[in-house]
Design a binder for these strands. Structure first.
Length: 172
DNA sequence: TAAGTGATCTCT
DNA sequence: GAGATCACTTAA
């Protein structure tokens, strides 16, 4: 039984809670006639204006404006000169929230994931549905709470001791 | 452990 | 316009 996650899912709760709920859900990619599905095993939350680790903490820019947009859209951006990152936008409009999808089953690391699934900026700003060829499904997999580990986020030491230590990273 | 890589942001 | 920065990976 599989059910596509709609935008309601991404604004029903606050961002860290949604992030935790995404574990065990499936990322589905349709590319060149083939469909790939992978279970999400690692995510990070980026929530609100005050989160110094978030791109949005200095306000809206040309790049991060997607984060201020509607929940359930993809925010894809390029960094380190070679890596794509895949995020799903959360929260109400004009509130900057997003969840970075860091890992799927059998493949760890956010940039490896996007490379494996041929994700690039063409998907930036697209809604997460079948039309965009990249979406999320609930396939009824339940992850018991004691398997979920929360930890500080990766690569955000610059955000200072308070925000870099927030346990906004979740993995199985 | 360090270097590669280039878009984006911030300051002149 | 120039310089710094960066939600990472790979190869040693």
């Amino acid at each position: 039984m599989s059910k596509i996650l709609k935008s309601d899912f991404f604004k029903s709760k606050n961002t860290p809670q949604i992030a935790r709920d995404l574990l065990g859900k499936f990322l589905v990619r349709r590319y060149q006639g083939k469909t790939t599905h992978c279970m999400i095993t690692e995510v990070e939350a980026y929530d609100g204006f005050k989160d110094k680790a978030s791109h949005a903490h200095r306000g809206r820019t040309e790049r991060n404006k997607i984060m201020f947009g509607k929940a359930g859209h993809w925010y894809v951006y390029f960094t380190y000169g070679m890596h794509w990152m895949l995020n799903i936008v959360t929260g109400p409009e004009n509130y900057p929230g997003a969840i970075l999808i860091r890992g799927i089953e059998g493949l760890n690391g956010p940039a490896r994931l996007t490379k494996a699934l041929h994700i690039d900026k063409k998907l930036n700003g697209k809604p997460a549905d079948k039309k965009s060829a990249l979406w999320l499904e609930n396939r009824g997999v339940k992850i018991s709470k004691n398997k979920i580990i929360s930890a500080p986020r990766i690569g955000v030491a610059y955000a200072g001791p308070i925000w870099s230590k927030k346990k906004y990273r979740f993995y199985i």
